[in-house]
């Protein structure tokens, strides 16, 4: 092995450039990061307050057997958390993840600071990797913040009760918490697709809004296509097809089959998008 630091300035180590801590602080300094995380805290509180106005009206919430998640939302902290996840999984979390992953490189390009990072020099692969890790870290933090806040306020308000649903027996609080963690894990895996797509767009453009919006739009498009049953088996290939498979984790015995397929789909898509992002960014001419 030859000296990889050949000719570098004193104190420079390629592997120490853009430390994760520095990138974490760089992102934390941004108002939108704090707003997004703040929203994750606020949403459960808003829902909780909204439930206080419940007049006992009989709403038809639809959604078949799983629609009862809404009716059961106030039956305990675990159910309240589940409800918060249920209502935010399809859009809010998608936007949050797209924001963290789509904004990270594109905004540096827009400010012009990207070229100075590359001139440090932060090796391109390292820049992409650190940016991705931190973006995923914030995405995970958002998910945990939402679930954690919901669990805390839900438990404080509605108590530490078993997890209820109409598709299974009551699940004891301890086991229910495990289910909840499994659901969080699956949601995190599914959202990797959004993360991958947003990140790919992020390294391809210097318009952060384009990257975030593009990822969200494509996600919505995929969801719409998934509603069209005429597409048949092709729908199984849509990245959003298995996005609600986590509901199967509520039943007893737990239904892993769709969860596993969803995980495969998400991992394949995310790997594909990230590979493309790395391939593209490590080769392209940075002109911004």
């Amino acid at each position: 092995m030859t000296d990889l630091q050949a000719g570098a300035a004193a104190g420079y180590r390629a592997a120490r450039t853009l430390p994760i801590r520095a990138e974490w602080r760089r992102q934390w300094s941004r108002a939108r990061t704090r707003w997004a995380l703040g929203l994750m805290v606020a949403l459960p509180l808003i829902i909780l307050i909204a439930f206080q106005f419940d007049n006992g009206g009989d709403d038809d919430n639809g959604g078949g057997e799983f629609g009862s998640l809404i009716d059961l939302a106030t039956s305990g902290g675990l159910n309240f958390t589940l409800f918060c996840l249920y209502v935010s999984a399809t859009f809010l979390l998608v936007v949050a993840v797209a924001l963290f992953c789509g904004d990270t490189v594109a905004s540096e390009a827009q400010w012009g600071s990207l070229r100075y990072l590359l001139a440090v020099p932060v090796p391109r692969a390292r820049l992409v990797a650190v940016k991705l890790v931190v973006a995923l870290g914030y995405s995970g933090l958002a998910l945990l913040t939402l679930a954690g806040t919901a669990l805390a306020v839900g438990t404080a308000r509605y108590g530490w009760e078993p997890l209820r649903s109409t598709v299974a027996n009551e699940i004891a609080p301890g086991a229910g918490l495990v289910r909840l963690l499994a659901i969080l894990g699956y949601l995190a895996v599914v959202l990797l697709v959004v993360a991958g797509l947003a990140f790919l767009l992020s390294v391809s453009t210097d318009a952060p809004l384009g990257a975030v919006g593009g990822a969200v739009l494509l996600w919505i498009l995929s969801s719409i296509l998934d509603q069209i049953s005429a597409l048949g088996a092709v729908r199984n290939l849509l990245p959003t097809h298995y996005s609600t498979a986590w509901l199967g984790l509520l039943s007893t015995p737990t239904q892993f089959d769709d969860v596993v397929k969803g995980a495969i789909s998400a991992v394949v898509y995310a790997t594909l998008f990230w590979s493309l992002a790395f391939w593209r960014f490590t080769r392209k001419d940075v002109t911004s």
């Binding site: 420079y12 760089r26 400010w111 600071s113 001139a119």
Partner: peptide, 18 residues
């Protein structure tokens, strides 16, 4: 990405700040 770039300080095409 050459490490030797670390011995160069640069201003190219205007400032780029957060």
């Amino acid at each position: 990405g050459s490490p030797v770039l670390s011995r160069i300080g640069a201003l190219v095409e205007g400032p780029g700040f957060l």
